[in-house]
Simulated assay, not measured.
Amino acid sequence: MGQVRIYHNPKCSTSRKALQRIRDTGVEPEIVRYLDTPPTRAELAAMITAAGLTPAQAVRRREALFGELQLAGADDDALLDAMAEHPRLIERPFVVTDTGTRLARPVESIDEIL
């Protein structure tokens, strides 16, 4: 298996489960703590597209900041701008491998790219 990268938030149980699932395959992934080192807008857009998602599917709607910024009904560009500026709004975790990119919700969705 080639490179495996996880955009990780250690406070998130789903993110921790995805990291463990990767490690259970015998791989130690590159861990990107995206709140500390967020992807650029272009990287984020590419990751979302590669996962077969839209920005509306990749944004954390339950995050209080989503409401504060009045993002309900926002278009893709506005959502990408908001996620790039405020990485807390990025749904997690994204896992990127040579085989593909997935949002690990549910965690089992990463199995096909590991």
Rank of each mutant, 00 (worst) to 15 (best):
G2R: 14
S109P: 03
P106M: 12
T37C: 11
Q70P: 02
F94V: 03
R16A: 11
L79Q: 03
F94W: 04
T101K: 08
V32P: 06
G52K: 01
A84K: 00
A50M: 06
D36S: 11
I22S: 12
I90K: 05
D77E: 15
R105Q: 13
A74F: 08
E112K: 13
R5Y: 02
A64E: 14
I48Y: 01
H86F: 13
V107P: 09
L71T: 06
V4E: 08
Y34D: 01
L103Q: 13
E63M: 02
A72Y: 04
I31W: 05
I31A: 04
Q57Y: 05
K17T: 10
A82F: 06
V32G: 09
R41N: 00
Q20R: 14
L44E: 00
T40V: 01
R23L: 06
S109Y: 11
A74T: 07
G100I: 09
D81E: 10
E30S: 08
P55G: 12
A104K: 01
D75A: 05
A104V: 10
E108L: 08
G52V: 07
M83E: 09
R23H: 09
I48G: 03
D24M: 11
I22W: 10
T37Y: 09
L69V: 08
A84M: 01
L89T: 13
N9M: 09
L35T: 07
V96K: 10
I22M: 10
H86Y: 15
T54C: 07
Q70L: 07
G100Q: 06
P29Q: 06
G100Y: 12
E28W: 04
K11W: 04
P55A: 09
K11I: 09
T25W: 09
G100M: 11
A82Y: 05
V95D: 01
E30P: 04
A46W: 03
P55R: 08
L53S: 02
M83I: 07
T37Q: 15
T49G: 09
T40Q: 00
K17M: 14
A84V: 00
A64K: 14
P38K: 00
A78G: 05
G2L: 13
T14E: 08
L44H: 00
L19I: 04
R5T: 15
N9W: 09
A104T: 08
E43N: 10
D111A: 14
A56S: 15
L53A: 05
T14Y: 05
R21A: 15
L69D: 10
V59R: 01
I48M: 02
K17N: 14
Y34N: 01
R5F: 01
S109F: 12
T101C: 12
A50F: 05
C12R: 14
I110Y: 03
T37I: 11
A42C: 01
Q57K: 14
D81F: 02
E85Q: 15
S13N: 11
P38Y: 00
R41E: 02
P39D: 01
E30F: 05
L71D: 04
